[in-house]
Design a protein around this nucleic acid. Structure first.
Lengths: 185, 185
DNA sequence: CCATAAACAGACAGACTTGTCTGTAAAGTG
DNA sequence: CACTTTACAGACAAGTCTGTCTGTTTATGG
């Protein structure tokens, strides 16, 4: 009988629900019901729904940073690094019922006065861009060219995620993976 | 003093608002207020908010089909065709305050029981994919290869649109345009 | 044992949502 | 003029949402 504290349960439950149905599609009441906490407990830990969303995005970003770091430290050749990344992306999308990128999905519904959320999305995306640039720099010696290729990998990754969601299919990820491997040759 | 009929005013107003703030971020009341119609008039033309959204998506799809057809019939060499497409995409995003792809944004907030909306999104995306495949077929003789390149153009286009929205910047579109030109060489 | 902190339950306010309803006014058509 | 279509105005229902509040229970440390 695992029973983490209320804050962790809320964060985990909210994460699943936000991911599955989107930030605007989930209400506080459902979150606390599914997490088994009282509303007062929720507002003791999070001042608002928006701040809960920020905590969720931050949490995911930290996890993905770890993953990026591990992959970069793996010593794999860059093509295989990219291939491993896209393979893992495919697994992630399939497991999540093709719900796409949580950051992009959240950005699509948060207006510009959600400053904290917008900033977290931007920060994560920029950090992902840097990750791809690092992969590219392992395969391409010319710095300017490697930055360009890294950015292309980033755009491919984003498009693959978005269209896998729209089309509920994995072929965009396969296409992106192949393209990435060719770019890194 | 132009005064189109109520249905057209509703459709136009809703289109602007949906695009700017997302399907779930705009209510019927605001739409009819800004369109200057009564609620009863709205429900005389559209059985629900969802059907209004479908009409909007269909309307945009029809317009983009015309644009795709014109570009394909322009007689331009494929690289220039793609370049023109991405240039126009950049203009569109800039003019729309980097609100990204209306279809993807709508898909991010419509659950799976919005069957009509989901179908329209898929249809538009598949049709855009076909458009890029046609461009690729003008540059690449091998059919299998040209389909692959077309799909890559499609993924690049999607990623460029999504990340221009997230980062509020045009560089993803520039990157995608350059990559597209290289793919078609 | 007792005090303090944390989480519980749940009513409530106030503002929003979509959609229905009644009734009125204007415009076009015979 | 009479009739029909179209649109107007706006109250209303029934439900949702976030956030606040009061009060009770449970657990933990001294």
């Amino acid at each position: 009988m695992k029973k983490p504290n209320a804050k962790d349960r809320i964060l985990e439950t909210a994460g699943e629900l936000f991911f599955q149905r989107g930030y605007s599609g989930v209400g506080i009441n459902e979150i606390i019901d599914k997490a088994g906490t009282a509303k007062a407990s929720f507002y003791q830990h999070f001042p608002s729904k928006e701040s809960l969303c920020e905590a969720w995005l931050q949490d995911m970003h930290d996890r993905s940073s770890v993953h990026h770091g591990e992959l970069l430290a793996s010593g794999l050749p860059p093509q295989e690094m990219a291939a491993a990344y896209f393979t893992r992306l495919a697994d992630f999308l399939k497991a999540g019922d093709f719900r796409g990128c949580p950051y992009s999905n959240t950005g699509a519904v948060s207006d510009e006065n959600c400053l904290g959320i917008v900033k977290l999305i931007r920060h994560h995306k920029e950090s992902t861009r840097v990750f791809f640039r690092k992969i590219a720099s392992l395969a391409i010696s010319d710095p300017a060219r490697s930055e360009t290729i890294g950015d292309r990998l980033f755009v491919l990754y984003s498009g693959a995620t978005a269209e896998a969601q729209n089309l509920k299919s994995l072929w965009p990820v396969e296409i992106a993976r192949e393209a990435a491997e060719e770019l890194l040759t």
